[in-house]
């Protein structure tokens, strides 16, 4: 489903965030990518969704070489993914409901279908009572769950979660881990980047460990 071969990513300025990375992730797998801060976890996820492009090597998603996609094809690649960003990237001037509606508007769902899906997603993460709230009025854990709802509302086949448990206490983190597992159980490929050892231990996924841009196990 996702495969890297000999991928190197050098950021402007010359810093090599990934060095000759090769890996394969099968459909329906749950994978946790761990490593120290700055190891290149976020970079790895960004390469999958064509947010950054490799300097050498190829990244294949569903057989497509994402490094050579035309600009007009990128949106359609990204719709395969549900994306949870390390910095959330919620829209703070829109309500919870509108935040979750955004992906459906982008893809072009009909009004009724879209409304139904938004409610289902909010129900799944336990935010149905906060539809009208603005994201700033939510706790850190609630914002994290809002980010999940937005990521999965269009039922993507791959969920990319970057530090989903950052800033959460243990109880919230456990709850969130269960939520991620539930997506895995219904067949979604779940790829998580985290340095939260407890999360990795609880989910017992396949692990990929990064160290200064190299896969070490």
């Amino acid at each position: 489903m996702v495969s890297f071969s000999q991928v190197t990513k050098r950021y402007p300025g010359g810093f090599e965030a990934l060095k000759a990375v090769s890996l394969d992730i099968q459909p329906g797998e749950m994978v946790v990518i761990t490593g120290h801060s700055g190891a290149g976890k976020s970079t790895l996820l960004k390469l999958m969704a064509d947010i950054e492009r490799p300097n050498t090597g190829t990244v294949l998603v569903n057989g497509q070489n994402v490094g050579t996609l035309r600009a007009s094809a990128i949106p359609f690649l990204r719709r395969n993914f549900g994306l949870m960003f390390q910095d959330h990237k919620l829209l703070y001037d829109r309500s919870v409901y509108q935040n979750v509606m955004l992906p459906l508007n982008i893809i072009g769902y009909g009004a009724e279908d879209a409304a139904k899906r938004v409610r289902a997603a909010l129900d799944k993460v336990g935010l149905l009572g906060k539809e009208k709230a603005l994201p700033v009025t939510l706790s850190g854990g609630e914002q994290q769950r809002l980010a999940i709802a937005r990521a999965i509302v269009h039922r993507p086949s791959i969920l990319l979660a970057d530090e989903p448990t950052a800033n959460l206490d243990a109880a919230y983190a456990a709850e969130l881990g269960e939520l991620l597992r539930s997506f895995h159980q219904v067949g979604v490929t779940v790829i998580i980047a985290t340095h939260d050892e407890q999360l990795a231990a609880r989910l017992q996924p396949r692990r990929i460990v990064l160290d200064t841009g190299r896969v070490v196990s």
Binding site: P75, F76, R79, L83, K89, L102, P103, I106, I107, R150
Partner: peptide, 16 residues
């Protein structure tokens, strides 16, 4: 900016 960036990240086309 932020809104456009997010929209593009989650699959919005330029015409959209």
């Amino acid at each position: 900016r932020d809104e456009i960036e997010v929209a593009k990240l989650i699959g919005a086309t330029n015409p959209f």
